[in-house]
Design a protein around this nucleic acid. Structure first.
Length: 156
DNA sequence: GCCAACGTTGGC
DNA sequence: GCCAACGTTGGC
């Protein structure tokens, strides 16, 4: 099993949106970055990911989600009227992919970016390295556990 | 295949 | 809203 972190802007699609979806499940569409796409294609059903809120007042990990459907073509890429349209992608030759995620649980207290930055054990995370802009990234098991530990500490 | 210009991300 | 840092594009 692998661990991941996936970023989304809560104003556009946050944990609250996911929660309100049928079966608390939604496609992770709109990723238009090769590295992020490739990571999504490596995801396996049952993998866990942190749902990270970016570009907001308090950026940080807000929830745990589970990958419930492995990578399949992102149909928003051939919707000409949509925001995520890309002429290179067609149903015959898809260019971009997405996975389905299901809300596992919302964190009792979000683990904020400031918390993560303050934690020496998490120094090597891609998330906190300079100029990081990747929206989907792998996380090591120790890092995964450390973040959950930070959650427990905050909840106390 | 290099690299400048451009657009985007995302924290502050 | 600013701007640093990065990925992508396109001219050569």
């Amino acid at each position: 099993m692998n661990y991941w972190l996936m970023k989304s802007e809560p104003d556009v699609f946050g944990v609250e949106h996911l929660k309100s979806r049928p079966d608390k499940t939604a496609p992770w569409d709109g990723v238009r970055n090769f590295q992020a796409r490739n990571f999504m294609r490596e995801m396996k059903r049952g993998d866990l990911a942190f749902f990270y809120h970016s570009s907001c007042a308090e950026p940080g990990v807000a929830a745990v989600v589970k990958i419930v459907k492995e990578a399949y073509p992102d149909h928003t890429s051939w919707d000409k009227k949509g925001e995520h349209y890309d002429a290179r992608s067609t149903p015959e030759k898809p260019y971009w992919y997405m996975v389905d995620v299901k809300l596992e649980r919302q964190l009792k207290q979000p683990v904020l970016l400031t918390d993560i930055k303050a934690c020496t054990a998490l120094k090597n995370m891609r998330l906190v390295q300079r100029g990081n802009r990747l929206s989907v990234m792998p996380i090591s098991e120790p890092e995964w556990n450390k973040i959950l530990e930070l959650e427990r500490k905050k909840t106390k």
